[in-house]
Write a protein that binds this DNA or RNA. Structure first.
Lengths: 119, 119
DNA sequence: CAGGATCCACGCTGATACTG
DNA sequence: CAGTATCAGCGTGGATCCTG
């Protein structure tokens, strides 16, 4: 993206995580159980078929997600996290923890503001 | 963003990191030294004044970055990372490390493909 | 020097309809 | 069931000009 001489490569990692629905998709797949296309749709009620497909393809291309097609009628396709994809788990968990702390901090600040305002 | 029952809060953390230039801005500020507006511009040659301002305001609002105005002519404004902002450092570093590994992995894969292709 | 204001382009995402 | 194709909207970021 930018030409930083070898430094800040968070951008690369973030490309694998960022996208309106990517984190949620990864979250569910990281539970370990392979999920069918429509199972994922049910878990992400607001995603469109199109976007789910696009994201899964992206993740598949990066070998973060594995796609297995069962040649049968009706078709069955299962998505699962790859071993390599598992390496994202601690990263996402860290982001998660920071996010939770950040929310809590904001909450405290706002409560504080309420208190001093009524003085 | 999405209504996940208390789980996956990476999204929150990512809002503090994501944005075309945010990682780079944070990277430079995390070096520790306060930087003036135009110093940052020089460090991010391709960013527009507008976007630098917008991102800095966002980061300031989240208390990740501190903005100090020296009332003088010509004006001088210094931006620095807050102590709270420092808590992002390990998170970004982890993303960076994953990114580097991811690039290396891709490189190896491509080299492998070249090799088997010419067989 | 450090911005603010305005206008504009493009890419991501969504909605909808169709298919092997 | 698991997609693909096409069209449309909107938000993020860019370009440019102006100012205390």
């Amino acid at each position: 993206m930018q030409k930083n001489p070898g430094q800040c490569q968070f951008v690369v990692a973030m490309d694998s995580i960022v996208g309106k629905w990517k984190p949620t998709i990864l979250y569910h797949l990281l539970q370990g159980k392979p999920l069918r296309f429509n199972e994922l749709r049910r878990l992400l009620p607001d995603i469109t078929q199109r976007m789910l497909t696009l994201y899964l393809r992206e993740l598949e291309e990066e070998e973060i997600v594995k796609r297995v097609v069962y040649p049968q009628i009706p078709p069955k396709v299962e998505y699962s996290i790859t071993e390599y994809g598992m390496s994202l788990s601690p990263v996402l968990e860290m982001l998660h923890r920071w996010g939770v702390a950040h929310i809590e901090r904001k909450r405290l600040k706002e409560a504080e503001n309420e208190r001093t305002k009524t003085d």
